[in-house]
């Protein structure tokens, strides 16, 4: 089953990416929504022999406005919480049909589960944990826009500290969300699955190669992709990619992967910027005082120290600017 898998090329430049589009234009994602770009590249890498399962979320509601669909490949949606369970069932069914000879046993059919942060961090978490434990050969892609953007910007487990949402308002007592973001990729990595990665669409070569690795491994793979949301993060749609790039440059978002137990940072940042550059671009952080920004910076410094200590060398550099 792995013959066609090993022939997948390593992507080095935009010219290596396939030209076919499996996500048709005409979907109703907001202007400047990076989810469209993430899904486009995911499907380019996966190719036509793919079944996509989506949890309820922005991508699900906006790409399939009945009677239209943007998907040029088989697609299914069941409920909010069970994208991972549906994907496991499809994968098991393919295995049985291949054993019985109904479909060609050498044909490789990719099963991809696609969910937002609400469908992964909070609602779909136990289904995801079950999928990882049973070891189904499914690629689970999480596009993380850090709140329930589809229903109108409610807080989720993925919302970062002090971020404004409609359920964590800003006033005399509340200063946005009180809690930290849940480290979902590390929780998934604790399941000891073959491939876990975090990716950033601004570093698209790194992202598509992670999708490729995730589809190649024999077993579950999990990829956590940051997805700047112009509507919910309150910035001009044209800065979507700039905000994503700043997330990595300020080490708010670290691109790493764990391949068969080996931890690697794939996008080293030799000189890191102050988090204020990232926070000040977004309206959801406009209420922050300098003291609160320093608190976030201290937290990021600790994270960076932890990553560098884990690797035994300095991949994320000191703070300049």
């Amino acid at each position: 089953m792995s013959q066609s898998a090993t022939s997948r090329p390593v992507y080095r430049s935009p010219f290596d990416l396939p030209r076919e589009e499996y996500l048709a234009p005409g979907h109703s994602l907001c202007a400047g929504c990076v989810a469209g770009m993430i899904v486009r590249h995911l499907l380019k890498v996966a190719g036509p022999n793919t079944i996509v399962v989506t949890a309820t979320g922005c991508v699900e509601v906006s790409t399939t406005l009945y009677p239209y669909t943007s998907w040029r490949i088989p697609w299914i949606h069941v409920a909010f919480e069970n994208a991972a369970s549906v994907a496991s069932g499809i994968e098991a069914a393919i295995k049985v049909l291949q054993r019985k000879g109904v479909i060609d046993p050498n044909k490789r059919i990719n099963v991809i589960a696609l969910a937002g942060d609400g469908g992964t961090y909070d609602i779909g978490f136990q289904a995801l944990s079950g999928l990882l434990e049973r070891g189904h050969k499914v690629l689970y892609v999480l596009y993380d826009n850090e709140a329930y953007m589809n229903t109108g910007i409610q807080r989720s487990g993925g919302t970062p500290l002090f971020a404004w949402t409609t359920t964590t308002p800003v006033g005399k007592v509340w200063k946005g969300k009180w809690q930290q973001k849940k480290p979902i990729a590390e929780i998934v990595a604790a399941h000891r699955i073959p491939y876990v990665a975090t990716a950033n669409p601004a570093y698209f070569i790194d992202m598509v190669n992670k999708f490729r690795k995730g589809l190649e491994v024999d077993g579950p793979a999990f990829i956590h992709v940051i997805q700047p949301c112009p509507t919910g993060w309150r910035f001009d749609p044209r800065y979507s990619i700039k905000v994503a790039k700043l997330a990595t440059e300020t080490a708010m978002w670290i691109n790493w992967e764990i391949e068969n137990g080996e931890f690697r940072v794939t996008v080293p940042v030799p000189k890191r910027k102050h988090v204020k550059h990232y926070l000040r671009m977004q309206g959801r952080f406009r209420h922050l005082t300098d003291k609160e920004i320093e608190e976030i910076q201290r937290f990021i410094d600790r994270e960076v120290e932890y990553i560098n200590k884990r690797l035994g060398k300095e991949v994320i550099g000191p703070l300049v600017e």
């Binding site: 048709a24 234009p25 009677p67």
Partner: peptide
């Protein structure tokens, strides 16, 4: 006219892949 209830495929499946191209979003601009 939208299809009638007895003309819709079971499960509300959409049998034409990628038909959102009939729905131009250029007028948002």
């Amino acid at each position: 006219q939208l299809p009638k209830w007895n003309e819709i495929p079971p499960g509300g499946a959409i049998l034409e892949p990628g038909n959102s191209v009939k729905r131009p979003t250029g007028d948002w601009r």
